[in-house]
Amino acid sequence: MQISAKADYAVRALVELAADSERPLTCEAIASAQDIPFRFLKSVFRDLRAAGLVRSQRGCEGGYWIGRDADTITVAEVMTAVDGEFFTLRGVRPDALDYPGAAHGLPELWRSVEAAAHGVLGGTTIAGLAERGVRVPARRPAPDVRDAPGVPA
């Protein structure tokens, strides 16, 4: 299974928006934060906006917001929004495949692969990914004064 750059960029952009939902983020800021080519990200946002996954506002106070609650947006939904069909084999959905002879059972394998991928990606939300990505600064342990020079043990 190959995941397109467009799907990868779309998920990363939405996770970035979900992680900082207090204010709109510019396409430039998201592209920079995620190391995504700006021009490509603009086309990704067009698809995301058409699917209702982001909303935008023009102007100096403008930018992009996540279109709805990040807990309700799954990775599978994002992939479908930017790439069309979720899973195809040479452009054909697995449920439409029919092979002759000894390979007759192969479409069932492809349907199982699709179901497994959809189970994982359909069960993973943008909010869940944003929560996993929040980096909590490592807390340094308080220095033990007994280890300080000149302090008797």
Rank of each mutant, 00 (worst) to 15 (best):
R111Q: 14
S56D: 12
D98E: 14
A33C: 05
T26H: 10
Y64R: 06
P24A: 08
G52I: 00
G150W: 14
A31P: 02
A115M: 09
A148M: 11
I30L: 08
D95V: 03
Y99T: 04
P94L: 01
L17C: 01
E28A: 15
A50K: 14
T26C: 09
T88R: 03
E114T: 01
T74R: 08
G119M: 02
R135D: 10
E61F: 14
Y64L: 14
T72L: 13
T26W: 09
R58S: 03
P143K: 05
P107G: 00
L53V: 02
T88I: 04
A103F: 15
D35I: 03
W110I: 04
V44D: 12
L17D: 06
K42E: 13
E85K: 00
V82T: 02
E77Q: 15
A29Y: 02
P143G: 01
G84M: 00
D71K: 15
R93V: 07
I73Y: 06
C27E: 13
A130F: 03
V145H: 06
V92C: 02
A50F: 03
A142G: 04
L106N: 04
A18G: 05
G123P: 09
D147V: 10
T26I: 07
C60D: 03
G122D: 12
P24N: 14
E22W: 15
V92S: 08
V145C: 01
G133L: 08
E108R: 13
R39E: 10
E108M: 05
P100S: 12
D69F: 07
R23H: 15
A96W: 11
T124F: 03
G63L: 00
A50M: 07
I36F: 10
E114N: 10
C27A: 15
Q34V: 05
E61V: 05
D47Y: 04
P24K: 12
R132I: 04
D95K: 07
A70C: 01
P24E: 10
P24M: 03
A76G: 06
D35F: 07
F87M: 01
V44F: 00
F40T: 13
C60Q: 14
F87A: 02
F87G: 00
P141L: 09
R111I: 01
G67D: 03
A142W: 02
Y64K: 02
E85S: 12
H118Y: 13
A70Q: 06
C60I: 12
F87K: 03
A81S: 11
A116W: 14
C60L: 09
V44E: 09
G63I: 00
L25P: 08
L14D: 03
P94Q: 03
R135N: 10
G91L: 06
A50T: 11
F45W: 01
P24G: 08
